[in-house]
């Protein structure tokens, strides 16, 4: 990401790499950061190998075995159709993780690009882009996602589109303010006075500044994406049943809560909480670490 296009600069003192490595080193000295990464690794592992680990077919109906409480046969019990909750959770994690990563990555690229453009070009470009961002931000997130979802129909890609559109303004804003905060810095002026081109300033001076805060936002955004995706499915406009999805599984269990069959909703929810906590901890740790490396 930080590599040099000027070949002979690579040999020595490629400070950004060292600063980056320093940040990584500090990150892994932080217990919170380590826990977060460990949780993430478990989830990635489940996402990759989940289908092989799952003892049952997540879609197989087994009405005689319905509403079984957790036991050795069914670790997390069974739901109203007798499907094994544990197996469904394993499959759902794969789905939700790929949803979150895909959606937030798309949002990241789009948002950072627009933010840099707006901040650097200023004037009409800035106004135009930020107005659109403001309008996107002026809907409460879930309701906007609902509107998108019913406009193009529920499904995997709908959720991705909705979540990525929702995350664009955040990235754009952060990237833009990073640009604005550095654009008038004296070292930029110094570079201009040495004859630097716009592109040089953009890529050598401004982009690196925007990277840090947007990466923090990326980590936090992943957590948020998982919650939004789950919420959409919970409301029935996300991933359509019977595909296992953590939010939709909570809906499945909603009607049984009153009668005490807690496991159908609680386990999927717990798995949302763990990973979202991990993403948030990651974001916080990256923030702490980069604060330190920059300010020292």
């Amino acid at each position: 990401m930080f590599s040099e296009s000027i070949p002979f600069m690579n040999t020595k003192g490629s400070h950004q790499r060292s600063q980056f490595m320093e940040a990584v080193r500090l990150y892994f000295r932080n217990p919170t950061g380590i826990v977060a990464v460990a949780v993430l690794m478990v989830y990635v592992f489940i996402a990759v190998f989940g289908p092989r680990l799952s003892p049952y077919n997540p879609l197989a109906l087994n009405l005689p075995d319905r509403l079984q409480p957790p036991s050795l046969a069914h670790l997390f019990g069974t739901d109203g159709y007798g499907r094994d909750v544990f197996s469904r959770v394993l499959y759902a994690i794969r789905l939700d993780m790929s949803l979150a990563f895909l959606a937030v990555s798309i949002g990241y690229v789009l948002g950072v690009f627009l933010g840099l453009l707006a901040g650097y070009m200023g004037k009409i470009t800035d106004h135009g882009i930020m107005r659109v961002m403001d309008i996107l931000l002026s809907f409460p997130s879930i309701l906007f996602a609902i509107a998108v979802a019913i406009a193009i129909g529920a499904g995997f890609w709908t959720v991705i589109i909705a979540v990525s559109i929702l995350s664009v303004p955040g990235f754009a804003r952060v990237a833009r303010s990073a640009v604005l905060s550095t654009k008038n810095d004296l070292y930029i002026l110094a570079a201009i006075s040495q004859g630097a081109s716009r592109w040089h300033i953009m890529f050598r001076h401004i982009l690196p500044v925007a990277i840090t805060p947007t990466i923090i936002l990326y980590a936090l955004g992943l957590g948020n994406a998982i919650i939004v995706a789950a919420s959409l499915s919970f409301l029935g406009v996300g991933i359509p049943p019977p595909t296992p999805e953590l939010g939709a599984m909570i809906t499945d269990g909603l009607q049984y809560v009153i009668s005490g069959q807690w496991w159908i909703s609680i386990f999927p929810g717990l798995f949302i909480v763990f990973i979202v906590v991990a993403f948030n901890m990651m974001g916080d740790t990256i923030r702490e670490v980069t604060d330190v490396t920059l300010r020292r």
Partner: peptide, 28 residues
């Protein structure tokens, strides 16, 4: 060439001294 007032702001904090001084050479 201009030398600015604020020495704390006029060098990119992410650059080594070498890179900061080399920059004008590379640009030009």
């Amino acid at each position: 060439q201009t030398i600015f007032q604020d020495p704390f702001q006029s060098i990119n904090p992410r650059y080594t001294i070498f890179r900061a001084i080399a920059e004008p050479v590379l640009i030009n």
